[in-house]
Design a protein around this nucleic acid. Structure first.
Length: 210
DNA sequence: AACAACCTCAACCGCATCAGA
DNA sequence: GTCTGATGCGGTTGAGGTTGT
């Protein structure tokens, strides 16, 4: 949507002193300039330094989702889509975590993509699956496998529960706490994307043969 | 051509967490 | 231990574009 790059009258504009709504190119430039000098932190002061009538939050969001370097915009590739689907299956709505595994993509973009494209796709697939008895069994088996894996993590954590961090790490099936380290496979000579794809493929295969 | 319905995505909001005083 | 401000996250909204009738 190219129109959103342009200075359009503010969305949700209010009579309050703080500017809200769509960003103008001028605002973008000023924000980028200040961030270049002072770095992307202390957003409130960045907003002030840039002379923007915006709250810090708004500046941060604009930077993270739009101005940040190396942001990939537009078409999500098939490979990326596949990875999103798989990661979502594993992690749920942990958009920032999912985005962290897709270089150049933002959590907001992935969330939007999910809500507008993939959630519908999933619903359709689910409907189809429900018609197939083998698929039902497969789903059950896979769910169980994931649950067992997560329970293992749980037990591990309980054993190490002497540290205060352990409490944080303590997980259950519904709130799986997968942090960056958990998904860092660089030591295995693989990119995270490669590892995850392999991991999930193996799981899918196991599912069919179990 | 005109209108309605639907879709997309940038941006806002509220809440949770963290760090420093 | 408590307070406060900064930051980050996920859910939601709504303007503007697209598609269908």
């Amino acid at each position: 949507m190219a129109m959103k790059d342009e200075a359009i009258t503010t969305k949700k504009s209010t009579s309050s002193s703080v500017n809200k709504g769509a960003w103008t190119t001028e605002e973008d430039e000023r924000l980028a300039q200040v961030i270049e000098t002072h770095g992307p932190r202390k957003w409130k002061s960045i907003a002030t330094k840039a002379g923007l009538n915006r709250c810090g939050k708004s500046c941060r969001l604009r930077w993270m989702n739009y101005l940040r370097p190396n942001i990939k915009r537009g078409n999500i590739s098939d490979q990326e889509e596949d990875l999103i689907l798989r990661l979502h299956k594993l992690l749920g709505n942990r958009w920032s975590l999912i985005a962290g595994r897709l270089p150049g993509r933002t959590d907001n973009e992935i969330k939007n993509y999910w809500n507008s494209h993939l959630s519908k796709k999933i619903q359709q697939q689910e409907k189809k699956r429900r018609r197939g008895p083998k698929a039902q069994v497969c789903n059950k088996v896979q769910e169980t496998k994931v649950a067992v894996q997560l329970e293992k993590e749980d037990v591990k954590v309980s054993e190490e529960a002497t540290s205060s961090e352990a409490g944080e790490l303590q997980t259950n099936v519904t709130s799986f706490n997968a942090d960056d380290q958990f998904f860092d496979f660089s030591s295995e000579g693989l990119t995270n994307m490669e590892w995850m794809s392999q991991f999930l493929d193996v799981n899918d295969v196991l599912c069919w043969f179990s």
